[in-house]
Nucleic acid binder design. Structure first.
Lengths: 246, 246
DNA sequence: ACCTGAACACCGTTCAAGT
DNA sequence: ACCTGAACACCGTTCAAGT
């Protein structure tokens, strides 16, 4: 009778039926971890732990860590909102998409780094590409120019976001520059010395790295839309007004 | 007499006096490993092994892996050659420096990734900055524009190099895009479908990602030098020739 | 001061074994 | 088919101990 102690009765509720694993759950859990701990805090083991399983279990749904990264990126890009059909000029709409893109990369620590090493090519990326190509063509770019412009603009936005969020994460980076700049001799590097204010202001317009970024977008858009072959307006960003020679 | 076996005589040459450790030796060894095995093959442990010591020994010379990365980057940038004083126009010289920069980042697997996460700020970076600022001012940029332009141009070059070398390393990335693009429905994404040729050609001009890159540099340079405030020539890349109104 | 081995707390990935 | 634990071959960094 007392051979074995009475069975311990444990409600199943204590450890509720785990939701079955799935790509989606894995990806969204990974994005949560990314948001909380940054890229360096993200690992398959941690994702697995958060899902109350072992790392090996994830390999049923993922080929490897790299694939998880790609899926995370595309999933996050779902949040890039497209402009309403006819809100403002093509240029305003183009910039608004690019800013939305930047904002998404910026909001999640480390997402931009993923974007740089991935070339997002999932469905959400395609949706963004389609929109950007359309807007560039609205601006007068031909097929080739639009394609190059798409690449240049997204690369730029991604690089901006990556540069700044890496610094946010590692901290040191910016300090290193600051000290390097503050200890410069005006004789050895006169121009750098003179420009050190402006050079530091780059990363200072905190929030979204904007202001300078807005200028840069205009610069690039102008170059893409106007450009080498003599066609279309080749005007400067805000208002140049004079030349629309053909 | 025969208590102990005769002392084994080993020439010191067999394991020659190790050269003393130093930052320089550590950095150059690390760069060798980077060149051979790429960024993913670089670790403090491997550097230590190559130097015939233990990883812990490196901490006398380095605060951490991050510092090693920064030192490696600046050391590699020593190879960026500056243009001879008066070879060609400021624009040609500017582009030649940027291309030299790109070439260096491109030659060593993984160096570009370091550059993105570091903001090179060692002596060699400063030398490059100084040169670029001078050339931009030669082109008519004011202080602020030159500083922004410096940042925009180096960021672009770094991003180009990083994007392509990551792909070279991970292989998968580009294939993923290729398959994604080839299976696109012309109904869902008509513009992407139409542009798929041009989109893929990006990364195809292998060697240095040039051609398209040359165009992009001109676009950016034009934007920086000409620009929002009405001054200077606001001309398109190759030859616009007409306006040098001031 | 410099170097070392061992330890700590992690990684991604594979594999045999369970259900 | 899906999940698991254990193992493999790695990491960066710290620390007590040696010279």
């Amino acid at each position: 009778m007392s051979e074995r102690p009475p069975r311990e009765i444990v409600s199943r509720r204590t450890r509720p039926a785990k939701p079955p694993l799935s790509r989606e759950i894995i990806v969204s859990t990974a994005l949560d971890i990314l948001a909380r701990d940054g890229l360096s805090g993200l690992s398959l083991r941690r994702v697995a732990t958060a899902l109350d399983t072992g790392a090996a279990s994830l390999y049923v749904y993922l080929a490897n860590l790299n694939e998880l990264h790609a899926l995370m990126l595309d999933s996050a890009l779902a949040a890039v909102s497209m402009p309403e059909a006819q809100n403002g000029s093509w240029r305003d709409r183009l910039k608004s998409v690019l800013k939305a893109y930047l904002r998404v990369l910026f909001e999640r620590q480390g997402l931009a780094q993923l974007a740089l090493s991935q070339i997002a090519s999932g469905p959400n990326s395609l949706r963004i590409w389609e929109t950007l190509l359309g807007l560039l063509k609205d601006g007068g770019a031909d097929d080739v120019k639009a394609a190059w412009g798409l690449d240049l603009l997204t690369l730029y936005v991604t690089a901006i976001a990556a540069e700044q969020s890496v610094r946010r994460a590692s901290g040191e980076g910016l300090d290193r520059v600051r000290t390097a700049l503050s200890s410069i001799s005006s004789e050895e590097f006169p121009l750098v010395f003179a420009a050190r204010q402006a050079l530091l202001s780059d990363s200072d317009d905190s929030q979204a790295g904007w202001g300078r970024g807005d200028w840069a977008l205009d610069v690039i858009i102008d170059g893409v839309v106007g450009g080498p072959n003599p066609s279309v307006t080749s005007s400067a960003p805000k208002k140049r007004g004079k030349g629309h020679k053909r």
